[in-house]
Structures are given as structure tokens and as C-alpha cells.
Computed example of a mutant assay.
Amino acid sequence: MRKTIIVTGGNRGIGKEICRQLVELGHDVVLTARSIEKGEEAALEVGAKFRELDVSNQENIKAFVYKYKEEVGELDVLINNAAIMISDGTDVLNIDLEVVRKTIDTNVYGPWLLIQELAQLLEKSEDGRIINISSEMGVIDDLTSNHPAYRISKTALNALTLIIHGKLGSSVKVNAMCPGWVRTDMGGSGAARPVAKGAETAVWLATERDVPNGKFLRDKRIIDW
């Protein structure tokens, strides 16, 4: 089944690789990014369509969705990949809360609003899916004091995944996944995993017939929240 898929934050790293793999499988991919120049360059490279989208800006999200509904009007898969990890030090007691707000705006509120705005299209699909790119750094049992803003945002994204599944799960498959520590701009050159491996589970969740619903996964296996 050829699917129409939106990938946020697709101009680099895991998002770009997800787009590449989905295009190679024959799907219609809409690659989104804040930077028009970088987004267009990435879309041309992987064979996707580009649309400007800043997931930290609510008005921009609504304008994007309005235009998308007018010009495309259908959607099978939403992959919420766009995220930030601001250098927030290791001290949860002294972190600037503005860093936390900015992180949550992008990593939680952005995906949440996109889901709200696109849920109707996803429910109309014969095989609607939502995939939230999360992290094991947000797992409750493994929370530590370092990178508090990022960890809290990913814990919240995992919670949002479960809550959205409770609402849409009978008609749309809703999952979160952890790509692992991947060699990207965010992960750094010392990361253990190649970007292709980091993208693999998201592509699998977007395209394969028999995948879980309402779960948190890594390497195509269900893991703890």
C-alpha cells in the first residue's frame, strides 16, 4: 500500500534518513523543516516533497495544516521526529526554566498540536498511524538528574502517546519509539549507532502490516516506559 506520510524535522539526522528509507519503499513523503533552504535541499536529495514547518510555533503549525488539507487532503502516517536538546547542564536545581519551556514547546506541544490538527485525516485513512520519536532517556525507571529538560520532554511525549492511543487507538495505530544513541548532530560523532539503524524502527512502524499499537519500542521490540 502506497502511503502519504509527514515527517517533521526531516532536513537532517534521523528524520532525513526516515524520509530516505520511506521514499525508497515507494511512499509519498512530505519532509518538513523550519529552514526552507535546508529542507528543500534535503527533500531534493532523498526524493521527498518539502513543506516549511516550525513545530515550536503554534500559528505556523495551524497554517501548515490548513494549507496541507487544502492541497493534499489525505494522510496515512504522521511521524513526529522534530526535537531539540539544548545544552542544559547536569544540575536540575539550577537549570534555567526558559530552557525547559523551549524544549517542551518543540518536543511536546508541537507533536500534540499536530496530532490534534491532523487526527481527522488520519482517522479517514485505511491504515492511519502516529509515530512519536522519543528516547529511553524519558523512561520513568531510568530518570537521572542530567539533561532534565530533554528527559522531562520525552517522558511527557511517552505519556502523550499513551493518552492519544486511548483516544484514537481503535482507528489509528499510535506508538512511540527510541532510535538509540545515533551518530547525528544531536547524538554526536561518538554515538554507537549509524543513522540507518536509528531510523529503522520508525520506518517499520509506518509501513509494516502487523505492528504493535499503543507501545514504546526500540529495534522493533517493545520496551518499558
Results as ranks from 00 to 15, higher is better:
Lys3Arg: 15
Ile5Pro: 02
Ile5Gly: 04
Ile6Asn: 02
Gly9Met: 07
Gly9Ala: 05
Gly10Leu: 04
Asn11Ala: 08
Ile14Tyr: 05
Gly15Arg: 03
Glu17Gln: 09
Arg20Pro: 10
Val29Tyr: 02
Thr32Gln: 02
Thr32Ala: 08
Arg34Val: 06
Ser35Val: 08
Lys38Met: 06
Gly39His: 02
Glu40Trp: 10
Ala42Ile: 02
Ala42Ser: 08
Leu44Val: 14
Glu45Tyr: 11
Gly47His: 08
Lys49Asn: 12
Lys49Gly: 13
Phe50Gln: 05
Phe50Gly: 00
Arg51Asp: 04
Asp54Gly: 10
Gln58Ser: 13
Gln58Cys: 11
Glu59Ser: 12
Asn60Gln: 11
Ile61Glu: 00
Ala63Tyr: 10
Ala63Leu: 07
Tyr68His: 02
Glu70Arg: 15
Leu75Gln: 01
Asn81Arg: 06
Asn81Leu: 03
Ile84Glu: 07
Met85Trp: 11
Ile86Glu: 09
Asp88Pro: 09
Val92Ser: 08
Asn94Thr: 13
Leu97Phe: 11
Glu98Lys: 15
Lys102Ser: 12
Thr103Phe: 14
Ile104Tyr: 06
Ile104Leu: 15
Thr106Phe: 04
Val108Phe: 04
Tyr109Ala: 10
Leu118Glu: 00
Ala119Thr: 11
Ala119Ile: 09
Gln120Cys: 13
Leu122Gly: 07
Glu123Asp: 15
Ile133Cys: 09
Ile133Asp: 00
Ile133His: 03
Val139Trp: 00
Val139Phe: 03
Ile140Cys: 14
Asp141Gly: 13
Asp142Arg: 13
Asp142Ser: 15
Leu143Thr: 06
Thr144Lys: 15
Asn146Ile: 15
His147Tyr: 13
Pro148His: 04
Ala149Gly: 09
Tyr150Glu: 04
Arg151His: 02
Ile152Val: 14
Ser153Tyr: 01
Thr155Met: 06
Thr161Val: 03
Ile163Tyr: 11
Ser171Glu: 13
Lys173Ala: 10
Asn175His: 06
Gly180Gln: 03
Trp181Asp: 02
Arg183Cys: 11
Thr184Trp: 01
Gly187Pro: 07
Gly190Lys: 11
Val195Glu: 00
Val203Tyr: 01
Arg209Gln: 11
Val211Gln: 03
Asn213Pro: 10
Asp219Ser: 13
Arg221Ala: 11
Ile223Ala: 09
Asp224Cys: 07
Asp224Trp: 14
Trp225His: 05
